[in-house]
Nucleic acid binder design. Structure first.
Lengths: 321, 321
DNA sequence: AGCAATTACATAATTAGTTATGTAAATGTA
DNA sequence: TACATTTACATAACTAATTATGTAATTGCT
């Protein structure tokens, strides 16, 4: 299939489907070769009954990774072919216990020993001719996808790529409106604008910058979609507070919060800070988890002008992070 | 999937199907992640149109390895989604030429560059974590199955195993009936019993053994299912003739002909023969091809008592075979 | 003991493909 | 040039799976 050299790996699903179809088709011919009246799709159910003995439909389905209705159908088909008997008596009257018939046991033994050995050897032959072991590779994929799904892995790549297109810049007067708008957006979604908010958002120069603080803006493809402030505190314990972090919903999943957070921390360090303070609300789950990821620890009892603040945290810059 | 450690490789098809289903399911979620209104099954058709430009249904089907009706359906679905326009004018009025719309081209470019890159990297990550490369392994299987199908490989294993259960023994009087029956079976199927046949089949001792010939019997699981004779000739050029080879239809595909042939040749060699002669009929294709495989060469002009003989061959034992 | 929740399964509807078949257009041939 | 064959496609019927849904039996809880 030359096609797949051109598509790249995003066609993995299609490519696998074609190979699967080809192999299933051959399997059918192989059963004919052995003159067994057997359909390849029966195999997993058949094998489980052979290997584990009589059991209910759902139990089989779980073992072979099929849906329960699929097993129901297959059991009925095999019953018709005389390989299986179902509706065996069991205490639980909901259960439909299936088991191999004598004929089924005979076919199974023959199929799994004789035929299985020939097929194993044929496949081992292909594996020996190849430099990459398909059988082992599939096993590894089953395991690795169990650990972390393909979706998750792609998500991470996406985030990584997009975070490379995020640029952090210093506040300039032209960003005044967006600084206000992005913050108002999340505040009004969950809470109400408080008096302290108004002051800072309407006069960032006066209330933040001129007092020795910083404001940064995150650009995604040159569009300002995130803001964050480092505010000088007048406190015996803390030098700076990280506050007014806001990311546009349009820029979610681009790692912007993390990038701005790291930038703010570095800035604080350069300004000689040893501890950073912040306050937030536990309603804002992604934010809280970001703070923990950055190394912030929960503290208690610091006075705050904000009504919505129900959690307070600090980051100790003297420790390695 | 622990199941597949127990089944052995004959469950390869089932195992592949499960992996394919899982990956297709994830692919669907990945498209949602990128907010593209796109179904994974469209991908091969979509890609071909992107890569090769406008073309007819059948041409697409051939390239992607799908059936033509499948492509017809997919093209219609994509047309409905506004990604493709079909029924484009073409000289050949039977043809339904499809092409990407402007929207389709935009989506394709974005999908294949940006999304494709993320997916490629995610899959490369899995491949890097694994010790066996699934992508390469699939490519190798596509190639190797093209060379020699799985069916053929299994057939060979079967033949090999069964030929190990074939035992060649010397003629004994108890095999007189089967010697006659097996020969009569094939002769009457294609030709008629001739006078010369009757003599040899009814009196093998007198006409074959006592004249210095040999008869061997091939047993499959102790059942006599094949016979062959080495007949002493009274001829200036040839010492022996290989004749009366017969294999029961029940024993077809067990390599019996080859095994008996080799045995006869070895016997002749031990008896000091330098050349073996045989005659046959070109109607008997498997037999003729067996003789060629054994090293026999076609010759012409030797006198024969048989009407059905239309081909004559010899094997030179002085040459390495 | 009585009722809600869960479980085990069957059945129906849906999905993504296939093979089989029909038909019009194009091509090949006597 | 007429007619048979082939090609290109659509449509129908089938296959092997899925998800959705309904129902009876069992279990869990107060």
């Amino acid at each position: 299939m030359d096609l797949f050299n051109r598509t790249g790996k995003m066609a993995l699903g299609s490519r696998l489907r074609l190979l699967t179809a080809k192999i299933t088709e051959e399997a059918d011919k192989i059963y004919k070769l052995y003159k067994v009246d057997f359909s390849p799709k029966w195999f997993p159910v058949f094998f489980v009954l052979y290997d584990e003995g009589a059991q209910g439909i759902t139990s089989i389905a779980e073992q072979i990774g099929h849906s329960q209705p699929s097993v129901t159908k297959i059991v009925k088909e095999m019953a018709k072919a005389g390989l299986v008997k179902d509706n065996l008596r069991s205490k639980d009257k909901r259960k439909n216990v299936a088991d191999l018939t004598e004929k089924g046991k005979y076919v199974a033994a023959k199929m799994i020993t004789i035929q299985g050995e020939d097929i194993d050897k044929a496949i081992d032959g292909i594996i020996a001719e190849a430099t990459h072991n398909l059988w082992e590779a599939i096993g590894e994929w089953e395991f690795l996808l169990e650990q972390r799904s393909l979706l998750k892995r792609v998500e991470e790549q996406k985030k990584l790529r997009e975070s490379q297109e995020v640029q952090i810049v210093e506040y300039e007067p032209k960003y005044k409106a967006i600084f206000k708008a992005l913050n108002e957006e999340w505040i009004t979604t969950y809470f109400e604008i408080e008096e302290t908010d108004k002051k800072a958002l309407n006069n960032p120069e006066e209330y933040i910058l001129n007092k020795g603080g910083k404001i940064i803006v995150a650009l995604y493809k040159n569009e300002p979609l995130g803001v964050c402030a480092l505010i000088k505190m007048d406190d015996p314990e803390y030098d700076y507070e990280m506050a007014k972090m806001a990311v546009s919903p349009k820029a979610q999943g681009k790692n912007m919060g993390w990038l701005m957070g790291q930038h703010i921390v570095n800035t604080a360090r350069q300004l000689g800070a040893t501890k950073i303070y912040l306050e937030s609300n536990t309603l804002l789950k992604p934010a809280i988890s970001l703070y923990y990821k950055m190394g912030f620890q929960k503290i208690q009892g610091h006075p705050t002008p904000y009504q919505r603040a129900n959690i307070q945290m600090e980051l100790d810059l003297t420790q390695n992070n």
